[in-house]
Design a protein around this nucleic acid. Sequence first.
DNA 1: ATGCTCGTTGAGACT
DNA 2: GAGTCTCAACGAGCA
Length: 676
Amino acid sequence: MTKPKPRVIYWFRTDLRLHDSPALKAALDLEPECLYPIWTWDPHYVYRARVGPNRWQFLLDCQSDLSASITKLNKKSKLFVIRESPTTLFPKLFKAWNISHLVFEKDTDAYARDRDNEVTEIAKKAGVQVITKVGRTLYDPDELVKQNHGKPTMSISQVIKAGEQIGQIPRPIPAPASLPDPGDTSLNFKQDHPSSEPDINAPQRNSSDQSYAHLAGPQGDFSVPTYDELGLKPSTTPHHGGETAALAALDKIISNTKYTATFEKPSTAPTAFEPQSTTLLSPHLHFGSLSCREFYWRAQDVVDNFKQGTASHPPTSLTGQLLFRDMYFGAQAALGHKFGQAYGNPSCRSVPWHLPSKVNEDTGLVVRDGGGGGGVEYSIDSSTAETWFQRWKYGCTGFPWIDALMRQLRQEGWIHHLGRHAVACFLTRGGCYVDWERGAAVFEEWLIDHEPACNIGNWQWLSCTAFYAQFYRCYSPISFPQKWDKDGAFVRKYVPELANFPAKYIYEPWKAPIADQKAAGCLIKSIDEEGEDGELDLSPWKKEIVAEKHEANGAQNGDEKKEKESMNIYPKPMFDFPSRRTTCINALKNAYRVGLYGNDQKVLDGTWRDLFPDEAEGPTSTADVEAMHDADAHGEFVHDAEGHEGLHEKDHSPVGRKRKEHGQGTLDGHVKRTKT
DNA sequence: ATGCTCGTTGAGACT
DNA sequence: GAGTCTCAACGAGCA
């Protein structure tokens, strides 16, 4: 008796490619009678993960390109996009299509693991065999953890050591030359509609969300959704997704053997644009439109054939970048949901930042609903910190380097790695003393290459709560960009108000004499001088980004012309950087001395904050306070003195009010030591 | 133990 | 302009 041939669903997720897909190969090795390449529209991504229009665009690009590539291999086939949650869809789909096997690439993201376990149970019940293969990382993150003695991989040397135990990174697998037919695709069942509540992506839409209006899309042909169907605001990124584009970009990079072999991340310019100084392949790695192993071996082969002894090495080399990615995946694989937050995380230091996340006491996880599009909910312990956070987010801090980066991020969905360092340091340990989880949430929303593990890991790194501890190494928003871009071309592009400023003042425009400001067509003013009754008015910066990039050179409407004729306004810096740096470094020093991690009992029960006096983050010496008053932007810096209100009670006082500072003392006298 | 080096990407003064 | 040292000082790993 011959066994019936397998009827296989290949479930695409973050592996939107045909080349080097071990899971797809496993599906094809079954020699199936039929193969259904599908995408299920997961409500977690639609409603619960923060996804801005630019990343949506990139995803749809990847899906469209993949679907076309599948059709090239088999005219009857395509990427069948089904609008339903995988957990409700699969039981019905297995039956309707008489499926014997479900194949997908292994995913170790905390959420994805839960979902995949659930789907695997569903398949088991339906008598469907599940096959998974690793292909998203160089090594299987679980294997990496196992070889790292069961511990999260917290340094690159641990990854290298564990990797040596595992063995060589697999060589890439060629794309298939043909694909089997799909079977009958009729859907003889009713669609289950997922709950859209809470919908943290509501702010990303400008028309009604039709994501789940039709099981197989408005035409009933399983096509990739359009922007209309998803109700999304238009994207503004110039970067596009898709395997075809990814492989072409990789070819171009690899063909430059010197660039490939001698790449050193720390010496690539974060101020470079058109072209950028790094590869911009990260969004492709996230969506799987490029295999990381393809990237690794193409780069490694160039290195191996390069002039002896002149190639760069991990961790700064191109392959080193991929090892860092694996490191973060390994940390996440070991820690699960706790990796994404400080609370309860044994590998993450507890620091009494401003704007801390709220925690659900039952689950021990941060509260991830925040109706109104906030994502993770947080306490506003300090109105000044909240103002600083909003000004950081919308690129109106008054520090041109920071503002240029944040505007590039919001508009294009990508900024250079060192630019991410600069803005992350500024928000957390090197300026605002705001919780890294606030910054991570903004990156989650805006980055087209948002990789949960890498984003979380890098924010922990930059805030010196994990992976990195040299908190006294602090990025200056003035000296750091000057290293690469003396003239400020980058600032001029992304902060056009300052386009005509003299290079001498481009990173510190508040120092320019009024005559120079007038000559450059831009006045430097306190934001709150601008608004009515002293209220902060960030609206000029918060307003929607229209896709003006492509139209700007064409017809301008009357309003825009008028605006051009009048004087531009750019804000004064929202605080004195040198004094804030001193304050933050001392606060970090203190937090390190207290030495608590997220899983400490005192952290879990909330009593840990008593170990930090009100002055925990405030100025630490009289000299600092004086320095602030001497600083240029008079009045503004008095805000520094607040932040002493303690972190528990909410502060409902109006944003931007000036306050008198309390008496100051050095930190040391207030600190109870927990380490001996 | 205690001291040393090293760690993907600091700033600033100096040679 | 590139390299080197100091500033103040972190943890991990090693001898």
